[in-house]
């Protein structure tokens, strides 16, 4: 049904018409023809629109991967920008099908809020940035510092914990957004700016004199960021989770956007890869998708490593090293469950 003001008004008729039958998320997405992906309003490297309004970024790529898996079209995504306050409510209320908005996987969010985290696409952690002329080389030397801190995030709590555990005091300068924090820090309102390492690196990269600022080596918290779905629709959760697994596994097996079509033409020597790419077995239909779902995904967005390098890797302005996000075979934490 076309969505326009009037037809929107007509939807009120549904109130009198009684309760419609509930559909699964997969059916809803397929019927609608687009995936509604809750995304950041703008975070360097993770989600940002170019001049033509096309969204790009690390989180955006995962949305596109899910859309390709379900609908076969990486462009069939509606990005719904959500603030940190509204993101979980919007997901719970069904405004979005999946939330990929650098959200930290925590106990209470996973249980109490009725949400399911389906993996970790970026292992982040909280860090500190200071001016290099302060001569500080460790976060343990920050006693008595003024700290710019984003309110309402997990970082606020981590900061308090870190300073209390180390018997130090600090004076918080609350800011609402990363942009505001950046400005306050540059204006000298605080000695230290603290937020997730990835955001900190992206912020530092935009400074005029990058060398005048250092990011301290301590990482004071675990911030595993990942895609989130609602409790209760496990089939949909499987699709989201295994799309992410597929991207990581593809990197592990050396499948790239360039060679995936070739590898998918005929069975290879690697039986797990064959099952992934649908040249043997029926793994696609097991999650309600076509057998070549992962082939389309990798062809469209690339494997995990490609997505990383393209959006936040060392050759981009954000310039993040793989670190924890390297494959488990290379000393990182990215580990895909077997396709068996």
């Amino acid at each position: 049904m076309k969505k326009s003001v009037f037809f929107g008004a007509l939807a009120i008729a549904g109130l009198t018409a009684g309760v419609a039958t509930a559909q699964s998320t997969l059916e809803q997405v397929q019927e609608r023809g687009t995936l509604q992906c809750g995304s950041n309003e703008g975070l360097a490297g993770f989600a940002a629109p170019d001049a033509n309004g096309n969204w790009e970024g690390f989180d955006v790529a995962l949305c596109r991967a899910i859309a390709t898996a379900v609908l076969g079209d990486p462009q069939a995504v509606e990005f719904v920008p959500l603030t940190s306050q509204t993101r979980f409510t919007a997901l719970a209320a069904g405004e979005v099908d999946v939330l990929v908005r650098n959200s930290t996987w925590t106990f209470s969010r996973d249980t109490d809020l009725g949400l399911d985290f389906k993996g970790v696409n970026y292992y982040d952690g909280q860090a500190f940035m200071v001016r290099s002329d302060l001569g500080v080389s460790s976060a343990l030397e920050l006693d008595g510092a003024t700290v710019c801190i984003q309110t309402g995030t997990t970082t606020e709590l981590n900061l308090a914990d870190f300073f209390r555990v180390n018997n130090m005091s600090y004076e918080p300068v609350p800011v609402a957004t990363n942009a505001e924090g950046q400005q306050q820090y540059l204006a000298g309102a605080c000695d230290v700016y603290t937020t997730d390492m990835s955001a900190l690196a992206a912020t530092r990269a935009t400074f005029e004199n990058v060398d005048e600022h250092v990011i301290l080596p301590e990482i004071v918290s675990k911030e595993p960021l990942g895609p989130v779905v609602r409790h209760g629709d496990n089939e949909w959760g499987d699709i989201v989770g295994w799309t992410l697994m597929g991207l990581v596994a593809a990197e592990e097996f050396g499948v790239t956007s360039a060679n995936v079509r070739e590898l998918a033409e005929a069975p290879t020597d690697n039986p797990q890869l064959n099952r992934m790419l649908g040249t043997s077995g029926d793994f696609g239909p097991m999650i309600g998708l076509s057998n070549d779902w992962l082939v389309n995904v990798i062809a469209a967005v690339g494997n995990y490593g490609e997505i990383f390098e393209e959006n936040i890797g060392e050759n981009t302005p954000v310039g993040l090293a793989r670190g924890l996000n390297a494959l488990w075979t290379e000393g990182g934490l990215q580990y895909a469950m077997p396709f068996n």
Binding site: E41, G42, A44, P81, A205
Partner: peptide, 10 residues
Amino acid sequence: NAIRATGEWN
């Protein structure tokens, strides 16, 4: 905000 999130205009 969204414009500022791009690499060019951050």
